[in-house]
Amino acid sequence: MKNLKYAIVGIIFGIVFVKAEIISWFRIQEMFRFQSFHMFSVIGTAVVVGLISVQIIKRLNLKTISGEQISINGKTFNKGTIIGSLLFGFGWAITGACPGPLFAEVGSGYWAILVTLLSAILGTWTYGYFRDKLPH
């Protein structure tokens, strides 16, 4: 079960989401209204820690635990980066959840969010269906 380790990382991650109240619709509202720095601080700290970690991995040319070379694919820019992000932002403010917290909310027993998750899957599918016709 080589994938089990990722499940364990996910479990810790899910607990963090709940315990730091990142899955809270109210916390997301506070963020978008600039009335609390909780979410900005969480995301900001995560970026700084991630940034330092990635720099260490690159500078020291660290390998994975199985000795594999670490390579990170870059992100490419196109019109979708703007249009898609804007639509995602709208959805984030409505649902109070980005994709990660959706899984944690379902696990927490908010059954209505199962519908949100299914609808998000449908949204992704719809993107795949119309992809060639959308501006990129």
Binding site: F88, L122, G123
Partner: peptide, 12 residues
Amino acid sequence: GGFLVGFGTRYA
């Protein structure tokens, strides 16, 4: 809301 999250994130 869920649809926008799924469609938007993939588009982006």
